[in-house]
Design a protein around this nucleic acid. Structure first.
Lengths: 198, 198
DNA sequence: GACATATAGTCCAGACCATACCATACTGCT
DNA sequence: AGCAGTATGGTATGGTCTGGACTATATGTC
């Protein structure tokens, strides 16, 4: 046992921690607002991190010595966070230890489908239509993203992060959305046919 | 607007609420423990609902008048929850209004991949191997489930729920896991080739 | 009776979350 | 200059969630 390598730090690092550390490591010193924008342009497409968290988390990481903070004295009083040597070490340690948790797939539509037998056939049909609209839209957006129709607008910022997202992580989103479209089309055509009988 | 049909209930109903209501509606009066087992056998495969929640949520629903509670006077002092007329109405209203939220895909492995450029090539390769193991295992388990190798063991309980899961919702799990295997195989063979360049 | 395992439920601190709110900066119009 | 409107940037609040660790009852079995 004794899994913790750091002799009981105040709190464990979460996915959010590594997200923040990773973005700052890749993009350099950042404000929470910048983190928020980078997240929205990339991983936020399918894993929502509430922005309040992206303001709170860096403060925690400062306490843990993984980031340092400077703050504008006037005006917006922006906070600028910079990664420390220990912060870099933390990321690399994390990357060297592959995650073993299974994927969490939280989908309200799927939950409704799970209970579709309690409603009407029409409800189920309407659900399939709504879900198809959602997933087709997501698919189209991802395909645009991949072609780079976006990510250029706005600013030069986040170039590395957006590029890396586009090439490496976004393809999973595409695969997922294609699967979802296929799935809901089947639901639409076959209904909840309870073809599980037999 | 005025979306709420019930004149400002203390709190809104969440996915968990509908999960609890739906299970009780389908399976009849249930204890939290039974809910927990039904969840574990079905939707819990990819959407984790911490068990503490399945003990707390019914109490809230009682306050809202959607369930009633009886409690054993002695021994385990189990709580048995029964759905009310208003509870049934709440479910049907929910089913009649298709969800419009996008899927949340929370995957620690994918997050690591998103930052794979900050680590070594070996780390990335190891990550792909680990993820392949996870997703292949999940795929195999789902395929067993579909064939009905499980769900019979243990008890007769949850027959309807498990059947419905198997026929209707599980196929999405299968599609997802197949996509994931395909994805991670590509990562394994191509590495994070940064083939995003041009 | 002693021990192990499965069943059933409770508790809690800390983290999370949505949401509303506050403040500063820029932009264009008159 | 004055003002409105919008985008930028950040904070506050309180309920909710979370993951353990913990307690206790029942069943078996040596």
């Amino acid at each position: 046992m004794s899994i913790d390598t750091t002799a009981a730090p105040p709190t464990r690092l979460t996915s959010t921690s590594y997200l923040v550390l990773g973005l700052i490591e890749r993009e350099g010193p950042s404000t929470p607002y910048e983190l928020k924008r980078h997240v929205a342009a990339t991983i936020g497409h399918f894993w929502s991190f509430p922005h309040a968290l992206l303001y709170k988390e860096p403060a925690r990481l400062v306490e843990l010595g993984l980031l340092t903070e400077e703050r504008e004295a006037e005006g917006r009083r922006r906070r600028l966070f910079t990664i420390t040597v220990r912060g870099r070490a933390a990321i690399r340690a994390w990357l060297a230890k592959p995650a073993h948790e299974p994927t969490e797939l939280r989908d309200a539509g799927l939950l409704q489908l799970f209970f579709a037998d309690l409603g009407s056939t029409d409800d189920c049909r309407a659900l399939a239509v709504a879900q198809l609209a959602i997933h087709r839209a997501a698919l189209a957006r991802y395909e645009d993203d991949r072609r780079g129709d976006r990510g250029l607008n706005g600013s030069d910022a986040a170039a590395r992060t957006v590029e890396h997202w586009r090439g490496v992580t976004l393809p999973m989103g595409l695969l997922y959305e294609r699967a979802a479209v296929e799935f809901w089309e089947r639901v639409f055509w076959e209904g909840v046919a309870d073809d599980a009988r037999r």
